[in-house]
């Protein structure tokens, strides 16, 4: 069923209901337009879809396999199912694969909800394998791997990389969604300081030669942190507060303001706890930033809470640790 090229919209059926979308719209867009929830992890409105997490798969009639809703363009007459047994099974397995190999404890709240919704049981693959030593995963060569005994479920757990005072990289939490790579490179910052290295289960986000961030091309804009869905990239301040068991989102407030450094007009969201800024984000729907900032807007807030010795509280002790090059 083809319609003239001048068509104004594309008509398809999703879960039995007809829907009309703009030409070029993705199935995800179509689903959202009609209020159908489709989980996504590697997808973000501001980034090019890489369709690697596969959690958004849906069933399209006459397609041998499921298709990723985030990048499949809606076609006239398509019949789509978003909640079939096949769809539910694949989503459940993907959640189990991630849950059994990655630390999802700091992931976006929806992840936990999906785990329940799709009845994922990551624990059924056995206990977690021992974390690897610092840097060991970064040195793995593609090809043959070590013995597998099946007694544990191999994961990506490893020590957190703490090599600067602004943010940490905890790749135990990394699901390899490529968002940070895209935000650093082609889709936002144009810095290309990180890329995916290695192959297969040993694939990882890496700087060249696994250099510390300060020795590579990183400009510390923190846009990678802004798009990370699992907390693998985290403000050093948040990481220190979590270590001290003082991180408390419920006690935080978010204040929107305009960055004072230059005239661009980037909007900032200051996340404060105990009246201290603990991290800075930017609204993704903001026209100027699309959620992205530069090093000044993202990290240059210390001057507003330069207290000297006055009114120091327990949170200040922890935040002071974040300013030391190496963790204690």
């Amino acid at each position: 069923m083809t319609r003239p090229e001048t068509q104004q919209s594309v008509r398809l059926t999703i879960d039995g209901a007809p829907v009309e979308v703009r030409p070029g719209a993705t199935l995800l867009e179509a689903c959202r337009q009609m209020g159908t929830e489709v989980p996504t992890l590697c997808y973000l409105e501001t980034l090019t879809p890489v369709n690697v997490c596969r959690i958004c798969v849906v069933e399209v009639e006459r397609n041998r396999t499921l298709v990723p809703a985030c990048s499949r363009i809606a076609e006239e007459g398509m019949v789509v199912k978003t909640d079939s047994d096949r769809v539910r099974h694949s989503r459940k397995m993907i959640l189990e694969f991630l849950g059994s190999s990655v630390d999802l404890s700091a992931a976006e709240d929806e992840v936990g909800e999906w785990m329940r919704q799709y009845e994922a049981e990551p624990d059924r693959y056995g206990p977690q394998s021992e974390p690897s030593a610092a840097g060991e995963r970064d040195r793995r060569h593609p090809g043959h791997h070590g013995e597998v005994n099946g007694r544990t479920a191999e994961g990506v757990h490893q020590p957190t990389k703490v090599d600067n005072t602004l943010y940490v990289r905890d790749y135990s939490r990394c699901i390899l969604c490529y968002k940070c790579v895209e935000a650093c490179g082609i889709d936002a910052q144009g810095t290309y300081a990180i890329a995916v290295a290695g192959r297969g289960f040993d694939a990882r986000i890496s700087t060249e030669m696994d250099l510390p961030l300060g020795d590579g091309a990183c400009v510390f804009c923190g846009n990678c942190i802004g798009v990370c869905p699992t907390g693998a990239l985290m403000f050093r301040s948040e990481w220190e507060l979590r270590r001290a068991e003082m991180w408390n989102p419920d006690a935080q407030s978010v204040t929107r303001t305009v960055c004072s450094y230059c005239g661009v007009g980037c909007n900032l969201e200051l996340h404060t706890q105990d009246n201290r800024i603990v991290k800075v984000t930017s609204p993704q729907d903001h026209d100027v930033t699309n959620g992205h900032l530069c090093i000044k807007g993202r990290f240059g807030y210390d001057y507003v809470q330069n207290l000297g010795d006055v009114d120091r509280s327990s949170i200040d002790e922890v935040l002071a640790k974040a300013r030391r090059p190496s963790p204690e």
Binding site: R54, F97, L98, L176, R199, G200, F201
Partner: peptide
């Protein structure tokens, strides 16, 4: 496996 997508990588 190239390691790109979750179902195949894990």
């Amino acid at each position: 496996t190239c390691g790109q997508c979750v179902p195949c990588r894990v």
